[in-house]
Computed example of a mutant assay.
Amino acid sequence: MTHYSILDLIPISEGSTAKTAIKNSVRLAQYADQSGFTRYWLAEHHNMPGVASSATAVLIGHIAAATNRIRVGSGGVMLPNHAPLVVAEQFGTLETIYNGRIDLGLGRAPGTDPLTARALRRSMNNQGEHFPDDVVELMGYLAQASGNSVRAVPGEGTEVPIWILGSSLYGAQLAAYLGLPFAFASHFAPDSLEQAVEIYQTTFKPSRQLDKPYFACSINIFASDTDEEATFIKTSHQQGFANVITGKPNFLPKPVEDITAKLEPGLLASVNHALRFAATGGPERIHTELSKLIAKHKPDEVIFNSPIHNAENRLKSFDIARQAIITI
């Protein structure tokens, strides 16, 4: 059976608050903890009114404290925004408290707009091109004592599992070279998925952390009791993604009956193209669509992304997906 997990940006729905969004995510994580999900990941984003996951390490600790079994981690931390030592100390501390349950997924994008990226940047000379060196530096801080004059305390010797996240061939190449697990962001950028996975699997070099390739892909899930209801609740994400790509991020919108009346044809086509790696429908259709995606791409793990306006509908969507995948 394919492992299954959750990606959460802690969406703040239109008419709600960040506090309520975080409470809803804690409840979702507790459900996942009790229902066989492998991991619960939170993604770093900034300057987005509808996303409450900016302080990612803080939220990982909050979710881990509210759960017992499930792995909790970053999907991911945007490393260009941070000094590797600080990340090592944060995640080393989390691993020290929640031993054996913490993941550290790393991305090389800033996770925001250019202006906010400038405000976040620890050094204006440190752009994404330094990402490989920063990853290696971070791995060194989390490794066993090496006699270095700079040490991560806590952190040193915890060997927190590191993942490389990506939406292009670059991340696949780096993950393969370093012998790390690789998660592809197919939930919003699926164009290079097949080529990236082939590169990763064929060029993978075993490492201390991993002896063979381990590949996860993220899938948008909009599941409900009927196909029609699922199509309806999906419109929130379609509108929200349209706002992001047009430079107008906002709260996660309420769903609409007719998305074609809300988004002009060219924009809707772009949104649907980017979000096409998805399963949408009632239980039977979700099972069929997930089965096809898993059979085609053969991931070791799927990571469900389900940004739905109503918290109850969101939890139901994940549960229908869970029930589908355990029978595939």
Score class of each variant (00 low, 15 high):
K19M: 10
T20A: 15
K23R: 12
S25D: 06
V26P: 06
A29G: 11
D33C: 12
F37Q: 09
F37D: 06
Y40F: 15
G50Q: 05
A65R: 01
A65N: 04
A66E: 06
N68I: 04
M78D: 02
L79F: 13
P80A: 07
N81R: 14
H82A: 09
A88N: 03
E89A: 00
E89K: 01
Q90A: 00
N99T: 14
R101Q: 09
I102F: 10
D103I: 05
G105D: 06
H130C: 05
E137F: 02
L138G: 02
N148F: 09
P154F: 11
T158Q: 14
I162L: 14
I164N: 11
S167C: 12
G171Y: 11
A175K: 13
G179D: 04
L180V: 09
F182R: 13
A183V: 10
I199C: 12
T202K: 15
P206T: 01
Q209T: 00
L210P: 00
F215Y: 15
I219W: 06
D225G: 00
S236K: 07
H237I: 01
Q238D: 13
Q239C: 05
F241S: 05
G247R: 05
N250Q: 13
N250E: 04
F251R: 07
P253G: 06
P253S: 02
V256L: 05
E257Y: 08
D258Y: 05
V271W: 11
A278I: 01
T280C: 07
P283Y: 10
E284H: 04
H287N: 06
K298F: 07
E301W: 11
N313K: 15
K316D: 01
D319Y: 09
Q323E: 12
A324I: 05
T327R: 15
I328W: 04
I328D: 04
